[in-house]
Design a binder for these strands. Structure first.
Length: 699
DNA sequence: CGCGCTTTTAC
DNA sequence: TAAAAGCGC
């Protein structure tokens, strides 16, 4: 596999030189041009928030200096279209090969597919790798070759695969640089003046960059790991791994983490240290959840905006931006929730347990549309990660087959004493409650007046009363749920009568729109985004409250035009349409438990409305033969290495008819038995010839 | 050792 | 809530 020209190594969220298969492949072929393309507009509403951009900035600087010391440098490009930038780069460098590592979020699946096609059309050899997961999503299936639909089964399988995850690769010793004279770097701007102050604080707590990530991993494994199972249920424990942002940007290889942790496990097992072993299992499980989030995203690329179990689309959300704001600002009146939200606001970080608490409160007590909450997490979390966040919010919203029940309201007071028994966490983040005795710290509304006075608390004044009482929330939730089930049943009946054509748009899932956001409006002119400072000037005055989060794209929510319609998902199709990521594909990704086959957990999709331009969910991996192209190699005897090399997750929108079933086996588009035999394990390379098989798949 | 009880914890 | 795990008898 050697070409005449140089190779482009396209860095994305794999910002490391160690165990980076794309980089290693590039180095093996000769001259390397390492490139990072910054094209936030491509991500639609999910362009990185302030803290993510801060991280990225430093991580890239770190990578750049590593590449420099190895003999090359990092070409940075500012772009609104990654693929065009790559094509230009091919021209200016004369590159004949492109290497990159896989990503699994819906936007990347599409973009990377497009990139591959476009470059192959130019005669470039493209090869992509797994650098982000222990196993590629398509490798992990049940006995029938179907993807798992519950985490436990998925993870059990991962831990008992017939082959181990790839061993981590060493960093290259030296990189021969391609000729960079004709491809000057653009200066990338990741923060504006107004953000610098807030960002400065981040540097005190975090050190982005792959070698720092590596240090963090080592430090964690040799230190807090052994106590992980004890401490992982304390809100303010400083003993979580803190690896998630490093992992999100691919600064540390999850396979390396896995191997090191397993080594530790073996030695603890030999010592009979069962607490240590349990800790390892728990930590591995959190790695497993991360794997599972990619798995879900790959198998259901709408999981960031559509509930996986369809009933939720009939849930009558409370579209109330004052609730939303109270939640964001940590002024709900529930100390644990508020402490969490203040911590998130201040630091971009939140313990996993507390994420569950605040998200659950958001969905079940406030009954705000879950995607708002997810979007806010996206904008504020340092480790914001589309796949993980989608998994988390779906879990909370009860739309995973193994998620938590939607009708069970968690009691923040109770959880407060569970995760923060001494109230230290609340006192740290809610100084106004600091003087309240622990006995009342998680339910100040019950505290005797004299105690409140002594503690300097005036409820409703310097700390709010609960904005929604739990009893009220419970009955409101019951009401909402009964409406939801009624609607769901009605819809199902309509579908079974075959009248769904007549219903048209109501069978389409239309999520509640994000609150109208000035920045979102400006999506029409992508270039505006490039310069956040100017952007800020467009914000209408009244919405720029100093106390609000200094987070681009969410600080400026204004009320949706007509809340009446957007409070009902079925009526808000028109409004919300423009808010979904620009890829504008409308596969209905709902999974409905197939009641017809009890106990089997078979999942089905519901049908999309006939008026929706359907997308074709192509699970073909690697070489781009169409779904119906049975000439694809089905060798299952190829080696591991080959398996990893040529395979690319493909999410390709086409104009073909939409499949009724995701997990079906007849039509060859499901993530089911149909794609296992088609899995082109023997293909390392994608070339022009194969491209010709790539066209839109029609059935 | 097995039986019902409480406790834990869910992605 | 509900299934599994711990636990006292």
């Amino acid at each position: 596999m050697s070409g005449g020209g140089c190779s482009i190594v396209w860095f994305r969220r794999d910002l490391r030189v160690e165990d980076n298969p794309a980089l290693s492949a590039g180095v093996r072929t000769g001259q390397v041009v390492a490139v990072f393309v910054w094209a936030p507009e491509e991500e639609g509403p999910y362009h990185p928030g302030r803290v993510s951009r801060w991280w990225l900035k430093h991580s890239l600087a770190h990578l750049e200096s590593s590449l420099k010391s190895l003999g090359t440098s990092l070409v940075t490009k500012r772009s609104t279209d990654s693929v065009s930038s790559l094509l230009e780069l091919v021209k200016s460098t004369g590159a004949t090969q492109l290497f990159f590592n896989h990503l699994y979020d819906p936007l990347s699946l599409i973009r990377d597919h497009r990139a591959k096609q476009a470059l192959i059309a130019q005669g470039v050899t493209v090869q992509s790798f797994n650098a982000d997961l222990l196993y590629e999503p398509w490798e992990v299936n049940d006995e029938q070759g179907h993807p798992f639909t519950t985490f436990a089964a998925f993870w059990e399988r991962c831990l008992s695969m017939p082959y181990d995850p790839e061993a981590p690769l060493l960093p290259p010793k030296k990189i021969i640089s391609g000729d960079l004279t004709r491809c000057p770097s653009d200066t990338l701007v990741f923060e504006d003046e107004s953000e610098k102050g807030s960002n400065a604080l981040l540097a005190r707590a975090w050190s982005p960059g792959w070698s720092n990530a590596d240090k963090a991993l080592t430090a964690f494994i040799n230190g807090p790991l052994i106590e992980y199972s004890k401490n992982c249920r304390k809100a303010d424990s400083a003993t979580t791994s803190f690896l998630s942002p490093h992992l999100h940007f691919g600064e540390v290889s999850v396979r390396k983490a896995f191997h090191l942790v397993r080594l530790k496990q073996v030695s603890w097992a030999n010592e009979g240290n069962s607490a240590g072993e349990e800790s390892v299992n728990l930590f591995l499980k959190s790695i497993g959840l991360r794997e599972y989030s990619r798995y879900l995203s790959f198998n259901h690329p709408y999981s960031h905006e559509r509930p996986l179990l369809g009933h939720l689309k009939f849930f009558p959300w409370v579209v109330d931006e004052s609730y939303f704001k109270a939640w964001r600002q940590g002024r709900t009146g529930y100390p644990l929730v508020d402490a969490g939200m203040r911590e998130l606001w201040a630091t971009g970080w939140l313990h996993d347990r507390i994420r569950v608490v605040v998200a659950s409160f958001f969905v079940k007590v406030l009954q705000l549309p879950w995607r708002w909450g997810m979007k806010y997490f996206w904008d504020t979390l340092l480790d914001a990660d589309l796949e993980s966040d989608a998994l988390g919010w779906q879990y909370i919203s009860g739309t995973l087959p193994d998620g938590r029940e939607l009708d069970r309201i968690d009691n923040p007071e109770f959880e407060g004493y569970k995760f923060d028994p001494n109230g230290e966490y609340v006192r740290r983040w809610l100084p106004e409650l600091a003087r309240l005795p622990t006995e009342w710290i998680h339910h100040p509304w019950n505290a005797p007046e004299y105690l409140l006075q002594a503690a300097g608390i005036e409820l409703g004044s310097n700390y709010p009363l609960p904005i929604v009482g739990l009893d009220a929330a419970k009955s409101r939730l019951q009401e909402a749920l009964s409406i939801m089930w009624q609607q769901e049943a009605a819809s199902r009946a309509a579908t079974e009568n075959g009248t769904e054509e007549g219903l048209g748009d109501s069978s389409e899932y239309a999520p509640v729109a994000f609150p109208q956001d000035v920045q979102m409006d400006e999506d029409i002119e992508p270039s505006v985004r490039a310069e956040p400072p100017r952007n800020r000037n467009h914000l209408p005055g009244p919405n720029r409250q100093f106390e609000d989060q200094m987070v681009p794209s969410i600080t400026s929510f204004v009320r949706a035009e007509d809340d009446e319609t957007s409070s009902d998902v079925r009526n808000s199709a028109g409004e919300s349409r423009g808010e979904v990521p620009a890829t504008n594909m409308n596969v209905n990704m709902n999974m409905d438990l197939d009641t017809g086959s009890p106990g089997t957990g078979v999942l089905q999709t519901t049908r999309t409305g006939p008026n929706i331009p359907p997308a074709h969910y192509n699970f073909t991996t690697g070489v781009y033969n169409g779904a119906e192209d049975s000439t694809a190699e089905s060798s299952s005897t190829t080696s591991r290495r080959e398996r990893d090399g040529g395979v690319v997750p493909v999410w390709s929108p086409t104009t073909s008819a939409f499949s009724d079933q995701i997990v079906g086996d007849e039509n060859g588009v499901g993530a089911s038995s149909s794609y296992l035999p088609r899995h082109p394990q023997s293909h390392q390379l994608v070339n022009c010839q194969q491209l010709s098989q790539t066209g839109p798949v029609s059935r």
